[in-house]
Amino acid sequence: MKKILLTIVLWIGIGAALCPATAQEGEYRTAVKILMDKSGSLSAADTMMDQMIPALSKMAPQQIPASFWTGFRQKWEAKSRERLVDIYAPIYRKYFTLDEIREMIAFYETPVGQKLSSSLPAITREGFVAGQQLGEEIAAEMIRELQQL
Rank of each mutant, 00 (worst) to 15 (best):
L84N: 00
L18R: 02
R125E: 11
R93M: 09
S39C: 07
L134Y: 05
G40I: 08
I14D: 01
S119K: 14
V129C: 07
F68H: 07
A66N: 13
T7S: 12
A139T: 09
Q63H: 06
K75F: 10
Q114T: 10
I138A: 04
I105W: 10
L120P: 03
Q51I: 02
E141I: 11
K58C: 03
L6V: 08
K115Y: 11
A60C: 07
L84M: 06
G127Y: 01
L5E: 05
I123T: 12
G13E: 07
T47I: 09
I64Q: 12
P20H: 04
I64E: 12
P121E: 02
I138M: 10
K115H: 13
I101H: 01
T22S: 04
K38W: 09
A17P: 02
I34L: 06
Y108N: 06
G131N: 03
A78K: 13
Y108T: 05
C19S: 14
M36W: 08
E82R: 00
Y108E: 04
F68M: 08
V129H: 11
L56D: 02
R83E: 00
A140L: 06
L134I: 03
S57I: 00
I12M: 15
M52K: 06
T97K: 14
E109D: 15
I14K: 03
K94L: 09
L134W: 02
S118R: 15
G71M: 06
I143Q: 10
A17V: 11
R93K: 15
Q114S: 11
E103P: 03
D46G: 09
S41C: 01
A55S: 11
T30S: 13
Q62G: 06
R73E: 13
M36Q: 07
K2D: 14
G135T: 05
R73Y: 04
E141S: 15
A139C: 01
I14W: 05
Q114H: 11
Q148N: 13
E145G: 14
A130R: 07
G26T: 07
Q132W: 05
T97I: 13
M1Q: 12
D99I: 08
T7G: 08
E145K: 15
V9L: 14
S39Y: 11
M142I: 08
V112D: 14
K33Y: 00
G127L: 02
